[in-house]
């Protein structure tokens, strides 16, 4: 049984069918990339998996449990971590406190009115920060971090409850090329070592081809191709929708300028 099984997921906004009967599955420890041109329905898909958006129909089974109809916070408690296209962190806290906040929630201490929050789970927070290479900045205010560091911090926060699935919406958006590679290597390492599955959307084809075990291509709300990097590169339909014919994926260098 796969960790995540998505069946005929659909969502319409008014007359626009943003996601049309999308079905796929994800194995434990697998990195699955969801790609597609702008407006293909990637984010809509993501937001339904995560519970932020109600699906019109379909089913999302995570380890045998139905996620559709559950709230984001309940889905998190089942072991699904999430990072956002635009980082969502707590600007008025230090880097360590950001992770501590997630740990406090994970350990069920939200209704503690007397203990000092900054004295709780410090070691665990530092271990997570070390994992993403942010330990040396643990005492800095989150509000002054560089964007790439915020992305790392967000990853540490998302890992706080030991999730078995990470949903990452454009994890490298807004980062410099060098940082992108570093961050995705980090994510891939975590996925392999801790058997965390990762589903991510991405525009940077270098990142996608280098770090995904499998790819899905979404166009106008429908999955038009699934397979390994090589399968997708040589798929005619994908070339058609992505590039309107003409150039091919083999010219990876050119793709970069489109990303």
């Amino acid at each position: 049984m796969s960790l995540l099984v998505v069946r005929v997921l659909a969502k319409a906004f008014g007359g626009v069918q943003a996601v049309k009967d999308v079905s796929f599955h994800l194995e434990a420890g697998e990195m699955l990339a969801l790609i597609g041109p702008n407006g293909a329905g990637k984010s809509t898909c993501f937001n339904m998996l995560n519970g932020q958006l109600a699906a019109d129909k379909g089913s999302v089974l995570f380890d045998g449990r139905e996620l559709i109809g559950q709230r984001p916070r309940d889905i998190w408690r089942l072991g699904v971590g999430r990072t956002f296209q635009i980082t969502a962190t707590f600007a008025s806290m230090t880097v360590r406190e950001n992770v501590q906040m997630a740990l406090l929630s994970h350990h069920g201490e939200l209704f503690s009115f007397w203990r000092r929050a900054s004295h709780r789970h410090g070691a665990e927070a530092d271990r997570l920060l070390d994992r993403v290479g942010m330990l040396h900045q643990a005492d800095r205010a989150c509000g002054v971090l560089a964007y790439g560091d915020l992305k790392r911090l967000e990853l540490a926060v998302a890992l706080a409850n030991g999730p078995r699935l990470l949903l990452m919406d454009e994890p490298t958006a807004g980062m410099a090329p060098k940082e992108r590679v570093a961050l995705m290597e980090l994510v891939a390492g975590i996925a392999k070592e801790e058997q965390v599955s990762v589903l991510f959307t991405e525009h940077d084809m270098d990142v996608v081809f280098a770090h995904s075990d499998r790819l899905m291509v979404l166009n106008r709300g429908e999955i038009i191709a699934t397979g390994s990097a090589d399968d997708i590169r040589s798929n005619d339909l994908v070339k058609e929708v992505y590039l309107g014919g003409g150039t091919t994926f083999d010219t990876g260098r050119e793709m970069k300028s489109h990303a």
């Binding site: 969502a88 962190t89 600007a91 501590q100 906040m101 209704f111 009115f113 007397w114 203990r115 929050a117």
Partner: peptide, 13 residues
């Protein structure tokens, strides 16, 4: 306290 932190966290994001 953790409760107070959760309030600030909610305000921030």
């Amino acid at each position: 306290s953790p409760f107070g932190f959760s309030l600030r966290a909610g305000r921030d994001s």
